[in-house]
Design a protein around this nucleic acid. Structure first.
Length: 515
RNA sequence: GCGAAUAUAGCUUAAUUGGUAAAGUUCCUGACUUCCAAUCAGGAGACAUCGGUUCGAUUCCGAUUAUUCGCUCCA
């Protein structure tokens, strides 16, 4: 199957079987926003549980929180999001290149300054030792003209940036004939202020006062709660705080189905450590997180580490765990050594100490942090794309037929077990099957289905990844045994009804993944 | 965001050089059926949205929305 084709099939499979729908579909959808359907939400919840248990339940020094999506605006000042990601962008229609409008104008100002400097150099040569630069600057006509121009541009740019006057930035590009360095064209699109963060209003007073951002990452909720958590749970370094939650980024280009969405869910853990130990913890988490992935049975060659070439301003080491999606190897999870950047910066801006008293060293310091951060939706997509397969299997007459099967790890599958009476027009069978269903549904997610031929029902369960099907036939009525059919091998075993819960539980339980 | 392409039923795809549309599959009802997408009978379901040209638009034109690909972006 071609890669494009495979991706297309995955997307329609997700829709057809109720995993993922486009948001607000009846209104033609909303760009890069998706909803999880009945089976999708089960799978997603199972992924979250596997992550949470592996991180929180399995580590006595990791605890969880659930911070609010809204945070004090200063949070994003401290984290660097406000300043670093708010740019006036403009595209040149000739070259289709994108620039920051303010940088283009600054480039123009540099050019004017170049002219002034040229005059000065020329004059220096002419007057020799007698040259007085200050006097020359104050008196030379051409220099004065250019200096005046430079100052005018500078003030206008500053005003436009302060007032976010995008129209004036565009007007400046046109008036000063600032052309695209690539195409030489002056044909610009409108200038747009682009900020990666969404914002909304707190209270009903409009204006800067109540301006609130939707968090672009969950990490800051952990950082600002660092001391609360450490003190209330009496943690000693090293310890971690885990969180699963929504984050929002106004991506310029959000594409590839749920791979890059504007609203998405992160599963993050910040591990607080003694400065100087970051290398070993970074290595520990790198290994632990990869193990979490491969424990699910996904082929190891589907994963690879990718070291960051350009480290973010806060990091001293960063690696991605990449997964081979249908559209190639892409980032699935990040492991970052964030130093003490975040805590220090919150400490500075809030004026509150965010330090840990180390009883062994008998001193206080700002801990270092190693972060693991995985996109829940990306994990979902990885699991789906890895699981969706087409197989050739023999049909009732022994001929080849195509089977579409979702080979999800049993622990993550939306349904664990389907309960199927062999025939629906025999009441003894359906009654018995209902009995079995009611017995099993206490243990794990089950589905009862009596419609259509048994083979079709097996295939339907295959398509949504149900690992086991229990069939009630005429023997069941005699001796209280049923068959359990395995999704992957198609093999059936006959067992007593009383054993089903235990047998299936053992196979679909998360325990063996965590151990 | 720029450029290109695309948009027909839940899904996959036809046809209409401008006269409101076909099929497979799915779904619903019933019959039948003793283990891997059986069969029979009946039924439901679509031209993305808005506007223009036209006697008449699913078809032509424009805009919008969405999707895909390339470029760009991805702290």
């Amino acid at each position: 199957m071609a890669q494009d084709d495979k991706f297309k099939k995955l997307v329609s499979h997700c829709k057809e079987y109720g995993f993922i729908f486009q948001s607000s579909e009846v209104y033609d959808g909303l760009s890069a926003v998706y909803d999880y359907g009945p089976y999708g939400v089960e799978l997603k919840n199972n992924i979250k549980k596997y992550w949470w248990d592996s991180m929180v339940q399995m580590h006595e020094n990791i605890v969880g929180i659930d911070a609010a999506i809204f945070m004090h605006p200063k949070t994003w000042k401290a984290s660097g999001h406000v300043d670093a990601f708010s740019d006036p962008l403009v595209d040149n229609k000739g070259s289709n290149k994108r620039y920051r409008a303010d940088q283009l104008i600054e480039g123009y100002m540099d050019k004017i300054e170049g002219k002034i400097n040229k005059e000065i150099t020329k004059a220096k040569k002419r007057f020799g030792d007698a040259f007085n630069e200050e006097e020359f600057r104050a008196t030379n006509g051409r220099v004065l003209d250019n200096a005046k121009k430079h100052e005018a541009v500078r003030l206008r740019l500053a005003a436009a940036m302060t007032n976010e006057d995008m129209a004036d930035l565009k007007a400046m590009l046109e008036e000063y004939k600032i052309n695209c360095p690539v195409s030489g064209s002056n044909d610009w699109t409108d200038v747009r202020m682009f900020n990666l963060m969404f914002y909304t209003q707190l209270g009903n007073v409009a204006g800067e006062e109540g301006k609130l951002y939707l968090r672009p990452e969950t990490a800051q909720g952990i950082f600002v709660n660092f001391l609360n958590v450490q003190k209330t749970t009496r943690q000693k370094l090293p310890f971690g705080i885990a969180q699963i939650g929504k984050a929002f980024r106004n991506e310029i280009v959000a594409r590839q189905f749920i791979f890059r969405m504007r609203e998405f869910e992160q599963m993050e853990m910040q591990f607080f450590i003694k400065p100087g130990t970051q290398k070993e913890w970074y290595a520990y988490w790198k290994e632990y997180r990869l193990k979490w992935h491969t424990a699910l049975g996904t082929a190891p060659e589907k994963f690879r580490f990718h070291d960051h070439d350009n480290l973010a301003f806060y990091a001293d080491a960063a690696v991605d765990i990449e997964f081979e999606f249908p559209f190639g190897f892409k980032e699935l999870e990040g492991i970052h050594s964030r130093t003490n950047h975040d805590l220090s910066s919150h400490q500075e801006l809030s004026g509150r100490k965010l330090q840990y008293f180390d009883p062994q060293e008998n001193e206080s310091y700002v801990p270092y942090v190693v972060e693991t951060s995985i996109g829940c939706d990306r994990m979902f997509l990885a699991m789906m794309s890895n699981a969706l397969q087409e197989e050739t299997v023999p049909d009732a007459k022994g001929k080849d037929s195509t089977r579409i099967v979702l080979k999800l790890p049993p622990a993550l599958a939306p349904n664990k077990c389907a309960i199927l009476p062999l025939l629906k027009n025999k009441e003894e069978l359906t009654t018995k099957a209902r009995e079995v269903f009611n017995k099993l549904k206490i243990h794990f997610k089950c589905q009862y289905d009596e419609k259509d031929a048994i083979g079709r029902r097996y295939r339907r369960q295959d398509a949504i990844g149900t690992p086991y099907c229990v069939t009630i036939d005429f023997d069941t009525l005699e001796d209280n045994t049923v068959t359990i059919r395995d999704r992957d091998t198609l093999e059936q075993i006959r067992v007593s009804i009383d054993e089903v819960a235990e047998i299936v539980s053992k196979k679909v339980d998360m325990k063996h993944l965590l151990a």
